[in-house]
Simulated assay, not measured.
Amino acid sequence: MRGLGHSVHPLTLTGLSERSHLLHGTVNLDTHIQDVVATLEVEDLRDAVLVGHSYGGMVITGAADQAPERVDSLVYLDAVVPTDGDSCWSLVSDQERKWYLDVDDTGCASRPLPFFDARATPHPIASLLQPLRLTGELGHIKRRDYVYATGWADQSPFTATYQRLSADPAWRTHALAGGHNLMRDTPNELARILQDVSASR
């Protein structure tokens, strides 16, 4: 995307990967939303396209609500699409909930799901349980895209979401022949979608 002239700001959320040393029991959804909002503010970003993968759908929705003057479009990559009062816990299947409850020795983080990339680190469980609180209806968002992964080994937990949004004229939907980690499995196809989102604004 940078090679195409775009400004890209990949974020590592608090408590994950190289920021795993910041993991503690109070790291929650609000923490992660603030990670994104702070980046928008510090970098003075305007007309931003927020891209969220999986649980990241919770985060980009909350950030768009809190910084409406800075966010133009939202792209959900095989992700949850919450409304006010939803949590990641409430939006997934019983199978995912079982995985979430497999906490590590700290007691405050879920172990990486079995199909995740080998580099994945434990995820703060409070962020999966906390309901999202929205102040508005996100009416300022100009474009909403949903990218669905068709290559799950078992049934995808996002099929119903994809089908619902495919019938909604307010959304653009896409299906890519990759597993849940679309960034790894279908990078070129995904880049084309993101380029189209950016070019259409």
Rank of each mutant, 00 (worst) to 15 (best):
D47Y: 03
T26S: 14
A177W: 00
T161S: 09
N188V: 11
D35R: 07
L129Q: 15
L74E: 09
F158V: 11
I125G: 12
Q66I: 01
R70Y: 08
A160D: 10
L91H: 10
S17M: 03
H32V: 05
L77G: 04
V71A: 09
T161F: 03
R97H: 01
P10T: 04
W152F: 15
Q195N: 15
V51P: 05
R2N: 09
L4M: 12
S166Y: 01
E137S: 14
H140C: 08
S17D: 00
W99S: 07
A126S: 10
W99K: 05
R143F: 14
L182H: 02
I33M: 07
C88G: 03
A199S: 14
D154N: 10
S54D: 13
A175G: 11
V36S: 03
Q163P: 01
R144N: 11
R2E: 15
G52P: 14
G139F: 06
D104M: 11
D168C: 05
H24G: 12
D35K: 07
Q130V: 13
L22Y: 08
K142E: 13
I33C: 06
V37M: 05
A160N: 11
A63T: 01
W171F: 14
N188Y: 03
L128H: 06
S17P: 00
M183R: 11
S54W: 07
G62P: 06
H123Q: 15
P122I: 12
A48K: 13
T159E: 09
G62C: 04
G85V: 06
M58N: 10
S93F: 02
A167R: 09
G57K: 02
H6L: 10
R143V: 15
Y55P: 01
M58H: 10
H6F: 08
L4Q: 14
L23P: 10
H140I: 08
W89S: 09
L40F: 07
L4I: 09
V59H: 04
E69T: 12
Y148V: 12
G136D: 13
R97P: 03
T161A: 08
L134S: 14
S90P: 04
I193L: 08
G179I: 13
V36C: 03
P114W: 08
N28C: 12
M1T: 09
L190G: 02
F158I: 08
T150H: 09
S156E: 03
E189I: 05
F116C: 01
E96N: 13
G52N: 04
L74K: 02
T106L: 10
L101Y: 00
H140F: 08
A38W: 05
S20R: 14
E137P: 05
W89N: 11
G56W: 00
C88S: 11
L182M: 06
V147D: 09
T173G: 06
I125L: 15
W99R: 10
S200N: 13
D94P: 01
R144Y: 06
V92I: 14
P122A: 13
S156P: 02
T121P: 00
D94I: 02
V49K: 05
C108V: 15
L129I: 07
P82N: 03
L128I: 01
S93W: 04
L190Q: 02
G52S: 07
E41M: 06
I33Q: 08
A153C: 01
L45D: 10
Y76G: 02
A191N: 09
M183P: 04
S198M: 12
P68G: 04
G136N: 12
